[in-house]
């Protein structure tokens, strides 16, 4: 397991400039969770309606460097289950884009 120093060198996937309050813990939590990914990996983040969601992706801006999706309040997991299924199906059919097929 990498130490804090090593983690801090990993790719930043969640940028500043969002509208979360100064001192709010949520952006930092997001940042550190996303460090669980290897730098060459791509994520799809499914976000339920809430403070984090409305404050980090106001059209036409987004703080998310990975793909991010929001649909409603109560269904982030259900939404993501569909995305995962599509990923599996497209992979099985060899239809994934080059950028993510690796």
């Amino acid at each position: 397991m990498p130490n804090l120093k090593e983690l801090s060198k990993k790719k930043v996937r969640f940028t500043g400039g969002h509208r979360m309050c100064a001192g709010c813990g949520a952006p930092m939590v997001v940042n550190w969770i996303l460090k669980a990914l290897d730098d060459d990996e791509r994520a799809v983040i499914s976000n339920a309606t809430g403070c984090l969601e409305v404050s980090t992706c106001l059209y036409p801006y987004t703080s998310w460097k990975d793909s991010w999706v929001h649909t409603a309040f109560e269904n982030a997991a259900a939404t993501c289950s569909g995305t995962e299924a599509a990923f599996k199906a497209l992979k099985k059919k060899d239809l994934l884009m080059e950028s993510i097929s690796s």
Binding site: V44, A78, S81, G82, T83, F87, A89, K92
Partner: peptide, 28 residues
């Protein structure tokens, strides 16, 4: 078929999963 079948717990989840899959670029 090559389809991924998602057995969900409600129609709300069914449509949510369909949206997630279509947003991913799949035919749903």
């Amino acid at each position: 078929v090559d389809t991924e079948f998602v057995a969900v717990e409600s129609e709300h989840s069914a449509m949510s999963a369909c949206i997630g899959a279509a947003a991913a670029g799949g035919r749903v």
